[in-house]
Amino acid sequence: MSDNQQFFRDTAERILADRLEQKHIVAAESRVLPGELFATLAENGIFLMLVPEEQGGIGASVAEALAILKPAGSAAAPGPLLETMLGNGLLAQAGVAPVEGTIALAFVGADELAGAVTLHDVGWGGLADHVLVVADDAGRARLTLSAGADWLATPGEGAAGEPSDRLSAPSLPGASAVLDAAGSYADALRRAALLRAGQQLGAIEWSFTRSIDYTGERSQFGKPIAKFQVIQQMLAELAGHVLAASTLLDAAAVGLSETLVAAAISRVGDAADSAIAICHQVHGAIGYSKEYALNYRTRRLMAWRADFGGVEYWRGALARGFITATREQFWPAVSDAGLQGAA
């Protein structure tokens, strides 16, 4: 981890420790944004992470943004944190100044924007200050920035209990801009999904560590359950998922190759599935109670794996990059996929 990444991680951990309590996480399920947390993140420039310095931002890399989002996932931080951070980054790419307040993101096909518009499952859509619609316009990303108040919101919620709303308007409100040539729709979606995978990894690591600790605290049959081989085997299996997912995610964040990002999202998806199953099994009944902190991570994993394409979409995308290769082209394609250290 670079010094910069370490700095951003420490900053995020400090802010989260100071400004996020369990009551805020619970309140988010009643559509209350953790306001103090978001104000402090804004004061510290976190929402300008992906805005270049010459446009008044921090000019951080995706790897550095992940250094913020992993601890946020670990802390089960609610709210459109990723969306506001990336939304400002996308706006900057299109030459638009960053906005104050929160951003909700909606990825859609351009054909969905003709006439009366309905956006489905928009995280924090009814509560965000701004709505940024990212439309796939023949491969280019067309951005339309509008005020949250321009939309009629029908509240809904996802698996984590956070708002996931339907937004409608008689016609697409707001002003549009097109990303420059370097910014395709696929690039924008890829970055969103990779950052979401970072949040997932944080939640996975928290659940893994908590489960290890719990097996030392909980005794049955006269000894800590950590001493049972069956428990050890399950957590050893999860350790493999954690190591594989985190290593591939780190590698993907460096080069942002299409192949590697898709692979990292898929691999984190498997780690998430395994973490949900194993951490709950290890915890037994207590982990199933709403009061115990585990479910605030595992329900986020359930929600997050479906966002920004969803894990299955990225698996298909990954396969399509290889499927036309011949038997002898396959290995070079694997070894040139952009892995770190691969010469």
Partner: peptide, 8 residues
């Protein structure tokens, strides 16, 4: 994705 992770 598992293959690429293992290689890394």
């Amino acid at each position: 994705s598992h293959l690429l992770a293992l290689r890394q």
